[in-house]
Design a protein around this nucleic acid. Structure first.
Lengths: 210, 210
DNA sequence: TATTTTAGTGAACAGCTGTTCGCAGGAAAA
DNA sequence: TTTTCCTGCGAACAGCTGTTCACTAAAATA
């Protein structure tokens, strides 16, 4: 008998059942993240408990907490990038300021997926080199996509577009971190600050181009 | 008898001895920080062992690991600010570019005091609200001093100078984090990127002024 | 000198951790 | 049908954790 409440393995292929348990583990891990619980101090047993399986069953799906963690980082990074792509698509179909829309989209992600964002934020400077690299990689994708967008809009050269995108992402990401500890009321003020700071960067980069 | 190797308490006042042990604890804690050991997963017993005292003795000096941690954050923040003040003083006596000198000074801090920097970096997004606030406070001091400097140099208004300083510190701090995982060879390249990005910000902010 | 205060101690506690092991029982393969 | 494969399990292990307690001995105070 499975402790995992939903659907005993009757009439299900092994592959289906295995995938379902794997997802239960991943979802449980995400659910356990919060302002005062980081992935780093999350134990294998806690995850197993939340997922409704025995601690030992964990090993049937991941060899390590590290392996699970890297999965989470990938999923969170993907989630974020998809959201930003949608935002750019919306803008392309003619909707408002690029900077403002991007910032608002990002802040929405931070607000509605705080735990996923916290994961990226924390593991970026965590004690596992593998985690740090994984987050770095996600951010590099993020920066690259923005850089391409800038290059297409402004015809600036590779390096300067990349550096500009890098600065923009750094500022936005940092503001997201600040937003986590801010009451809703003060977040708009934060957004205004960020938008202004991003304008500094874009204007400064533009000035360098001509 | 004290396990703490140096100087048994003969011929010393209680206050002196207590202070010495307290320092031994603080220093031990700093020594234990590294790329793969954060303050968050540092145990009271590890600190005690490194300091050469019994675990129980810890409580004679700090009621918590939290209390010790906040002390470390204060010391690290102070250290950083003092260094940057020296750098500005050096610049005032007529030495080179403000931006370049500041960046190089900061990078030197990251290089020679990696563990102190890592403490600030990590606890800024850690699981303790008190820690996050403490780091935030240190960074605010840092930003404020830079903002004053900018205002004195450029006669810009309060808010824009503050926002500019905020963006500059964000970018530099972030680059410091990146530097930690980079081999020496690639750090100069990183410095060049940062310097360029800071110029974007200062130019952009200047453009907004006129 | 006699008394009180206090930094430091070792033993002991319950509670948690990751991981190994052998076993069950249903799914898949022969 | 018989055999093999594999997900999930409970028991058990050693090793770590924070914290309590009653004690010592030296310094400070009376």
């Amino acid at each position: 008998m499975t402790k995992n409440g939903t659907n005993p393995p009757h009439n299900r292929t092994r592959a289906e059942q295995k995938e379902q348990t794997r997802r239960a583990i991943v979802d449980a891990a995400f659910r356990m993240l919060s302002a005062d619980h980081s992935y780093a101090n999350l134990s294998l047993r806690e995850v197993a408990r939340e997922a409704g399986i025995a601690p030992t069953s964990f090993y049937r799906h991941f060899k390590d907490m590290d392996e699970l963690g890297l999965t989470l980082v990938d999923e969170a990074g993907l989630m974020l990038r998809q959201l930003m792509r949608q935002a750019r698509a919306r803008i392309a179909r003619g909707g408002g300021s690029v900077v403002r829309t991007s910032v608002e989209t990002f802040m929405e992600f931070v607000d509605t997926n705080s735990n996923e964002f916290r994961l990226l934020l924390r593991e970026r400077s965590g004690t596992s080199k593998a985690f740090r690299s994984a987050v770095q990689r996600e951010m590099m994708h993020f920066i690259q996509e923005l850089s391409d967008y800038i290059r297409q809009k402004t015809h600036s050269n590779h390096k300067s577009a990349l550096w500009e995108a890098d600065a923009l992402v750094t500022i936005v990401f940092n503001a997201g971190a600040d937003a986590l500890d801010l009451p809703k009321a003060q977040r708009e003020e934060l957004s205004n600050k960020v938008i202004q700071q991003l304008r500094y960067v874009t204007r400064g980069a533009e000035a360098g181009r001509k």
